[in-house]
């Protein structure tokens, strides 16, 4: 059994807007997968459904054979597109929190990464700059030895240097047999770290393929192909 994530006929409506339309997906272990689509295409909805923050109207999600619940949350590491930490906490308190709740959290790794970033763990989260906050959250999420990482727009709105830092952190920290889903619309930047990509459009999966296969077959980068598929 090499599938890690299975989505069956996943459908989700937001009061008359269809956010996901019969999404069927099967993702293998040990892959970095780009979830690519324009804004409002359903990327975040799909990720939040897998994380357990949204309930689908129809269909089901299985992660390592389990339905989404407290069991899957123990091995799914989720990075939202917003700050989800109580910002009156100090950085080391957020480390305590992750350490207390997630058995796969490696506190030493997290502390080392924060040290390399020159982030003082005695500072309050709310006194950090926007970029630092994002980095702290990324460090927390990537310091877990999870089976599935869900990273929602991890490189949106950061400078190119930080972008490289984030991608390097992801590549160097994910466990070899775990799967990473990165949602983004900045394809050119993530393309080199991806094994596979998924195109999502109006809540439907348009294409799922390997990056190198696309280049071999079409002689095109994912970024170029994306522009062709999503041409207005």
């Amino acid at each position: 059994m090499n599938e890690l994530l299975i989505c069956k006929d996943l459908t989700k409506n937001y009061s008359y807007v269809r956010a996901l339309n019969q999404v069927n997906l099967c993702l293998e272990k040990g892959k970095i997968i780009g979830l690519l689509g324009p804004n409002g295409s359903g990327k975040t909805t799909l990720i939040k459904t897998i994380a357990g923050l949204l309930k689908a109207d129809f269909g089901e999600v299985l992660i390592d054979g389990e339905k989404v619940g407290e069991k899957t949350k123990a091995f799914v590491s989720y990075l939202p597109e917003r700050n989800y930490l109580d910002d009156t906490m100090k950085v080391y308190e957020t480390l305590d929190l992750f350490n207390d709740f997630y058995i796969d959290f490696d506190r030493n790794t997290a502390e080392k990464m924060l040290e390399n970033l020159d982030i003082d763990i005695n500072r309050k989260f709310k006194n950090l700059s926007k970029g630092m906050k994002e980095k702290v959250q990324l460090v927390l999420v990537m310091s877990r030895k999870a089976r599935l990482y869900l990273l929602d727009e991890p490189i949106g709105g950061v400078d190119p240097a930080t972008r490289d830092y984030i991608l390097n952190t992801i590549v160097s920290n994910y466990a070899p047999d775990s799967t990473v889903i990165i949602s983004t619309h900045l394809i050119a930047d993530v393309e080199k770290v991806l094994d596979e990509f998924i195109f999502i459009k109006n809540g439907e999966i348009v294409m799922q393929s390997s990056v190198d296969n696309l280049r071999e077959e079409k002689g095109m980068s994912v970024d170029e192909y994306f522009r062709e598929v999503f041409k207005c």
């Binding site: 923050l53 949350k73 700050n83 989800y84 709740f101």
Partner: peptide, 12 residues
């Protein structure tokens, strides 16, 4: 926003 953490903790 904090709900994003609260409801992704592995608890009942």
């Amino acid at each position: 926003d904090e709900g994003y953490l609260t409801f992704t903790l592995p608890v009942k």
